[in-house]
């Protein structure tokens, strides 16, 4: 069985936000300030004119980190949040009671309330849409013009993501919390 993860060449990101749009389109995420599964964070340039560090301005594409030790799953009182057999952290809307404890527990702000089902929603690596139809890429990956994202099976040593992670240095967000995220930011 696969163990899906994603590597991000985040320094290639140009903040075009095609990924945000593709995600909304593919997964039917509603418009609205709080309704998003993925986003691009903007770290502004540091320093005062004329000594402004252009290199310090970076874009950080982000989403659910699909942690192997997910705080959101631990705190769910009805096991509505669960790991799929592919290691994807998912929410069963039938069991979700909307206590929003998982939103509080997530260190990455990756969850929100879906106004269609009035339950908690989050990134699923397009498992219900693209992967279920036999695709091997996520919508955000497929649409990215600068090839920031590489999605694949971490347990397959021949997969593109495994090859990339074997060759490049990377960091994971808030790794010190012991969440074991499966999003890898290539340095």
């Amino acid at each position: 069985m696969a163990r899906y993860g994603m590597a991000l060449n985040y320094k290639n990101c140009i903040n075009c936000r095609a990924c945000e749009t593709a995600c909304k389109e593919e997964n039917g995420v509603l418009l609205g300030k709080d309704n998003y599964r993925i986003w691009v964070g903007v770290k502004e340039a540091e320093g005062l004119f004329p000594n402004i560090s252009i290199a310090s301005q970076t874009y950080h594409p982000s989403q659910c980190q699909h942690c192997s030790n997910a705080p959101c799953q631990l705190v769910c009182p009805t096991n509505a949040t669960y790991y799929s057999k592919d290691g994807i952290v998912k929410v069963d809307p039938v069991k979700c009671i909307l206590c929003t404890y998982c939103i509080n527990a997530c260190p990455y702000d990756a969850r929100y309330v879906d106004q269609r089902t009035i339950t908690v929603d989050k990134c699923t690596f397009c498992s219900d849409t693209r992967l279920a139809n036999g695709e091997t890429t996520t919508a955000c990956q497929a649409t990215c013009p600068t090839k920031v994202r590489v999605f694949g099976d971490l347990d397959d040593p021949t997969s593109e993501i495994s090859q990339l992670l074997a060759k490049k240095e990377y960091r994971r967000v808030k790794e010190h919390l012991g969440t074991e995220p499966k999003l890898f930011y290539i340095l």
């Binding site: 631990l74 705190v75 009182p77 009805t78 509505a80 909307l98 206590c99 339950t119």
Partner: peptide
């Protein structure tokens, strides 16, 4: 405040989250 209190009563019993302090 709880979005689905009836669902809570059902799934607290059917699929209890034993690692959850709320449960």
């Amino acid at each position: 405040e709880i979005g689905h209190p009836v669902t809570m009563l059902i799934y607290n019993v059917l699929t209890p989250g034993l690692t959850s302090a709320i449960w």
